[in-house]
């Protein structure tokens, strides 16, 4: 079973996932080097599926590449580019290579990318894709045809706690959990009150026992990327005071670091939050610093610690 699956089964330890950098060319060795900033801290990393509607090396190829360099992948599957037949083929194809973790997304629209003239697919939506992955896990394609030996999939999804309709977002998350999502990676949210309300609604209704909630944080170097997210990424609102806090600071890079550190501390303080999903746009060694400041040990140490405890029992 995947490490992520084991952690979900054990039900109490911290889970750290990360966004792996996209692949556009080069060799496996180049990619291995790129992963090193974040990989040592993560239990598993997302093999992304054409992020923000930009073409890159495919999700399945990326997941296999990650496995080959010793990083546990989470296969992202989005609904924008492929119909249900191709999505099933991707999940089964990745499973053939031992990829068990799946993250089901509706996905950004084609207009978010650099080929807006492309046809959008959206044959399924996010919640339907979760059920589809469950069907495969239970041993059959959507048609009812047997898959033979069912792949031991660990199925998750995403949700955005920070956008409208705000009071409904936890219900949508609950729908995904009921459909079979065992972990939810949340969209980055610059409104702590919204994140709090979202997690509280799930926690008070018992959903956080069934599903690991992993809020996202994005480490940036200055106010530029914050402004970009606010202006160009639908669904992310960065309040003006957050942007000016970083923009007007004496050293914006330090202030941006403080911001992400505070976001992590806040998220981890919320009852019902199981861990974090990390994205690194700084690429200056900040991930190690961040995890140190948060008291998060590298994956191998956490693994060893858990192993020792199990042996002791």
């Amino acid at each position: 079973m995947s490490r992520l699956g084991e952690l979900l089964d054990r039900g109490n330890e911290l889970i750290i996932t990360g966004e792996a950098p996209v692949i556009d060319g080069g060799t496996l060795a180049d990619y291995e080097a790129k992963l090193q900033e974040l990989a040592p801290w993560c239990d598993a990393m997302n093999a992304t599926d054409n992020t923000a509607a930009h073409a890159h090396a495919s999700n399945v190829a990326m997941a296999i590449a990650m496995q080959r360099v010793g990083v546990e992948p989470i296969l992202q599957v989005v609904c924008r580019d492929k119909n249900r037949i191709a999505q099933q083929a991707d999940i089964m194809g990745a499973a053939l290579h031992g990829v068990e973790n799946i993250c089901c997304l509706t996905g950004d629209d084609v207009t978010a990318g650099d080929e807006s003239e492309a046809r959008r697919v959206f044959d399924l939506d996010g919640p339907q894709l979760i059920r589809l992955a469950n069907s495969l896990k239970e041993g059959r394609y959507l048609s009812g045809r047997s898959v033979g030996t069912p792949p031991p999939l660990v199925i998750g999804a995403v949700e955005n706690p920070g956008t409208h309709p705000l009071d409904y977002r936890a219900q949508r998350a609950a729908k995904k959990i009921l459909a079979g999502a065992r972990f939810l990676q949340l969209q980055i949210c610059y409104h702590p009150d919204r994140l709090e309300g979202f997690v509280k609604a799930l926690h008070e209704n018992g959903f956080t026992e069934k599903c690991a909630i992993l809020p996202s944080v994005v480490a940036v170097k200055g106010a530029g990327p914050l402004k970009f997210m606010n202006n160009a990424v639908p669904g992310i609102d960065v309040p003006a005071d957050v942007i000016s806090r970083v923009a007007d600071a004496e050293t914006p890079a330090d202030e941006a670091y403080q911001l992400v550190l505070e976001q992590c501390q806040h998220a981890l303080s919320l009852p019902g939050v199981r861990g974090l999903h990390l994205t690194d746009f700084r690429k200056d060694g900040s991930m190690a610093r961040l995890c140190n400041d948060l008291g998060i040990k590298p994956r191998t140490e956490r693994e060893q610690h858990a192993h020792d405890r199990i042996v002791a029992v």
Binding site: R80, D108, A112, P127, P234, G235
Partner: peptide, 23 residues
């Protein structure tokens, strides 16, 4: 819905409650 979603809003809803695809 431009994405023809049957199970609720995507994560791209804008701060003013408008559509990701058609602002």
């Amino acid at each position: 819905c431009p994405k023809t979603l049957r199970n609720g809003p995507c994560g791209g809803v804008r701060e003013n409650g408008h559509c990701e695809v058609k602002p």
